[in-house]
Design a protein around this nucleic acid. Structure first.
Lengths: 134, 134, 134, 134
DNA sequence: TTTT
DNA sequence: TTTT
């Protein structure tokens, strides 16, 4: 009924960009997200979380993100189950991003924080800008 | 750059439903959200948080929510500033809901957890159901 | 660097309660979380997400939650990797709950929304109640 | 019952650091969080959100954050009401941070993403590292 | 392996 | 299979 996840981490590899047969862009990458605590060996481990992004944001991810870059992802967690090649049930966890933010400074640029939306995420003049009835 | 808030609480009053001059529905209500700790007097206080919902979800809120009902809200925090009647700058905090979930059992019904979307929240057959290219 | 997930769903089975050799309680359960969209067959699918809860909250989950009950979980996503019995690397996804809320009405009770903390979640008289220096 | 907010934005001014009479550190700053949509004038507005941080993290914020720096905040929304100097009830909204992440690259450093915890956020060897009973 |  |  409610499924919301927010991550900040670094890409472990360049995003992989594909297109569906209907021409819709899909980007995939993995985010290394450091754990907030140290393990018994005194090391800080990370979770490696798969992220998938659809539509115009996928193109932007492919353009602006690369291995080692810092990004924030806001989306939902999906667990896809499928038949493995050995006949057993396999599970595949991924975060379906609704929004991705690029947090690494632009190369020759003036700093991090660039918004990735070539197109507005929802509607423009968002909710309420028609004049509030309250 | 990222602004996401998730609340669970009870309505302090029935939702107020209005329409903009373009015919768009807007619902407003206040959520009482208990704090996770007790104050020095040993009492559990609550935050009273204003919520605004736009579009078809507004109609659903007005239909299915009422004073005392439990609801979850997923949205973003906005702080509107405006000129007070006394000429000073006033601030008004509200949560713009993207999703609302009704958590109180239906009256004559079989339990809580009904989804409020008369219409799907985003697109249907969501992202990826066109056949994954991976 | 930041890893936060919030879920609302129903338990697919009763919580399983264990104790570590140091006597710390651990509860595990699976949450069925409906997806916000319908698939091509017009059905609403769900994600089945494993949750683990530590400490006093684990005991409370075992006491107050059971199959079919509605719960909210606020925590972080962890992906544990381990050696499978067939020598291959396996991945196991689970949400480590920091807070769990019980959303189903109490059996003979007056409604949902009970807080599960037998002990306060952080410190009591939380932050700031010592008298603000601002 | 549940109150969780996650923000990414830039500090509008240097953090203000104080100490309670019990010696506990408190830092305050304001985060400018860009809205995801443009207004009717075609401009991107921002919400200016007050943040308060307690304890060791407050000292770290004061040390590592300054005007213009990018930061992520994970916390809860509180609305404090108090008697104004004119006798009317006033409301004051602030986010009580549980975790703050520094996202701007270190000055002479090797990049953003440093964790601010001089002390571990919760317990170390976090949950489960005693040997899972499952 | 799944809940309403 | 992993990032700084």
């Amino acid at each position: 009924m409610l499924n919301r996840i927010i991550l900040i981490g670094r890409l472990t590899r360049d995003p992989e960009l594909r297109y569906t047969n209907t021409g819709r862009a899909v980007a995939r990458f993995t985010l290394a997200v450091d754990r907030p605590y140290k393990n018994q060996a005194g090391e800080r481990e990370a979770d490696f979380i798969n992220v998938v992004v659809w539509g115009p944001q996928a193109d932007n991810c492919s353009k602006y993100l690369s291995k080692g870059k810092l990004a924030a992802v806001d989306g939902r967690l999906e667990i896809r189950s499928f038949e493995g090649q050995d006949g057993t049930r396999k599970y595949m966890t991924e975060v379906v991003a609704e929004n991705v933010r690029f947090l690494s400074p632009k190369e020759g640029g003036r700093g991090p924080g660039s918004d990735l939306h070539g197109e507005p995420p929802f509607d423009d003049f968002a909710d309420g800008d028609e004049g509030l009835p309250f």
